[in-house]
């Protein structure tokens, strides 16, 4: 066996800076594929018009290298660190933070982070929200998602009674999307995590938005069935693209099911606007 592999903090900063620019200006292929399919399937003429505009917007942003959306989000970083890799030359979290500050400046991205009470802007979009997972291997995979405020504000965490069961979960997800209406910029990606506990449910719902492809089926058959059922039900709400009415309110449901305490039925519903931005780099 060879020794650990070393990754320089400076390299992390420069890669994170590039991820910020890429993520804010380029819609990933899986999201584009979902939007194109939605444009064909949407039954409302107004809905189709909106979807055409969103596809044009994505093309323009990519060609001009400008942000898809003025809300360049909170920088959420999911780091899968190989257990045989070591970070050298500085603090890991500071390296990511520095990369975010560099990237948001370099690519003319909006700085949206402010003190909760004074609302004074930090002016460099720091702090990022960083989640670290230890995984087998020698590499570091960094995924960055600029998470906009509109969809995050209408996301919900429920600590349901176990008696409410699967039906209660379905109802809570539908209520969340229905009450959100036009605010989170539909068509949405709806990510739900059932089970675990309070913070675990919220984290898994977010993690799936960052790491799962919208065009790949869910490997868990129980979750896959729940995804299909919820997608059909959400699309019967009629909210439609931009909330102007239509048959496509949701592009994809991502579901994650896990064991929980005998007293609990935790549910996190993280809504994501159609600008489901995320980019990954492997060091």
């Amino acid at each position: 066996m060879s020794g650990p592999r070393y990754i320089q903090a400076e390299e992390i900063s420069s890669q994170v800076a590039e991820l910020c620019g890429l993520a804010c200006c380029r819609l990933p292929e899986d999201v584009l594929a979902c939007l194109s399919r939605a444009e064909k399937e949407e039954k409302s003429p107004v809905g189709r018009k909106v979807l055409t505009m969103l596809l044009e917007n994505a093309g323009l942003a990519r060609r001009e290298n400008i942000p898809l959306c003025q809300d360049c989000g909170t920088a959420v970083v999911w780091a899968n660190l190989g257990q045989e890799a070591l970070i050298r030359g500085g603090d890991f979290y500071q390296a990511i933070s520095r990369g975010v500050a560099l990237g948001y400046d370099k690519y003319y991205l909006r700085k949206s982070m402010a003190h909760p009470f004074s609302r004074a802007n930090s002016n460099d979009n720091t702090p990022p929200i960083v989640h670290l997972s230890l995984v087998p291997g020698r590499s570091l995979a960094l995924t960055l998602a600029p998470k906009g405020g509109g969809a995050e504000n209408v996301s919900r965490l429920f600590m349901l009674a176990p008696a409410l069961g699967r039906e209660g979960v379905v109802k809570a997800v539908l209520d969340t999307v229905d009450q959100a209406g036009a605010n989170p910029c539909p068509p949405l990606v709806v990510s739900l995590a059932v089970g675990g506990n309070m913070e675990d449910a919220a984290l898994r719902a977010k993690k799936n938005l960052l790491l799962r492809s919208l065009t790949e089926p869910n490997p868990d058959p129980e979750a896959a069935v729940l995804e299909e059922e919820l997608l059909a039900a959400v699309n019967r709400l009629g909210i439609g693209p931009a909330g102007l009415g239509g048959s496509v309110t949701c592009l994809r449901v991502l579901a994650d099911i896990k064991a929980c305490h005998i007293a609990s039925l935790p549910l996190a519903v993280n809504l994501q606007c159609h600008a489901a931005r995320h980019q990954t780099v492997v060091l």
């Binding site: 505009m53 400008i66 942000p67 509109g150 159609h274 600008a275």
Partner: peptide, 13 residues
């Protein structure tokens, strides 16, 4: 009035 949410690059034109 509503502008289409998320069509920010297009609207900037």
């Amino acid at each position: 009035l509503a502008a289409v949410g998320g069509a920010a690059a297009l609207l900037s034109r």
